[in-house]
Simulated assay, not measured.
Amino acid sequence: DTDTDTDTANAAPSGVALLIEPATPTTLDDLSCLIVTEAVDPNGDDLTYSYRWTVDGEDAGISDSQVGADNTQGGDQWSCTVRANDGELDGVDTTASVTVAIDQSCLAVDFDGTDGHIQASVPANDVLAFGVGWTMEGWFQIDATSTNDGHSRRLFGTSCNYNDVWVNSDGTLSFFRWPDSCAGSTAVNDGQWHHVAAVTEDGRGSNTVELYIDGTLDCTMSLGDMTSTFSGGGDIEYLFVGASSPRECGYGTAPAMAFLDGRVFGFRVQEGSAYTGGFTPSIELLPDASTRLLYLLDEGTGANASDSSSSGYDGTLLGGTTWVETCPE
């Protein structure tokens, strides 16, 4: 017998075992493509690996093992394909996929400043309409302070604009509670999130009306009579977030609506005075026994703002409103 040297033909490596972490990502998560079991090369050659990401079936142009959260959006399907190479031959492709969910803890409603707003119907005799002793509050981020059709941009208010908070041209806020108003001194047009709380209370000795910015008293006034109710006619009144009321309510001519250019993250109405002095605002607004309306604004889609209180006063997103992934930190 004669020994002969024969070259073993090069064979392609196998596929890998692959997964993407986290398995159920949100828009706050980076995506990592992890090789759980490496490929096997029949010839024992050293292997290298290539990565290719696609989003909704389209090449994402990313060849690293990770995708940053800032590249993802809610509803995206991201797939990672890994291929081994022995220096000459490619192995088989292995692909893993995940769907990115919206992070519902960090959602806001964006108002376009033209006609976007949230509107809810409430009974005319409800404290939300014109009653005394309530607190309206929310987190707002303001883009523009210029007037809208000759009117100041509104953060929130009720029918006939009898309970109204608006943005002045210098970025400060004013709180109107019929028949007077107080003007604040803190500018909020700095692109940051601010907690705004308007408080009325009949029975603290001076019919006190207060406006708080980020937990600090910004303006206050006393009214002689806060017990009157002001119905613009009919059994239904309205609450507006991001707009002023268009109702005539005895003015003779219905005022033009004035819309907010900015965003809102959560809005709550409490019966009674929730604050009687300085406080540290909570980013998360939660319901309690005195909550009469609460918009968590965590839907992320559609035109409904669900009321998480027991009142059931769902709001409707109207005009130029969009869901955006941003929130106070």
Rank of each mutant, 00 (worst) to 15 (best):
A254E: 08
D59K: 08
A9Q: 11
A120F: 04
A198T: 00
L286T: 15
C327T: 12
T2S: 13
T48D: 09
A60W: 07
L47T: 07
A39K: 09
L173H: 07
D90C: 00
V16N: 10
P42C: 03
H117V: 02
S169I: 14
N168I: 11
W139R: 02
P287E: 06
T8A: 11
E88V: 14
G320P: 07
L155S: 02
W193L: 03
D59L: 03
V241G: 05
W134V: 05
T37F: 09
A243H: 03
V55N: 15
C249W: 12
D170W: 08
A23G: 08
D112P: 07
D225R: 11
S174M: 06
D112T: 05
A11S: 13
Y49I: 05
F230S: 08
P179T: 09
V67N: 10
S152E: 14
V55K: 15
T322H: 11
L89W: 07
T208D: 07
A11T: 11
F130V: 12
D115R: 08
D314W: 14
T24A: 13
A258G: 15
T227I: 08
D180Q: 13
V67E: 04
A197M: 02
F279T: 04
F175G: 01
A39I: 04
I142N: 05
N10Y: 03
G224K: 09
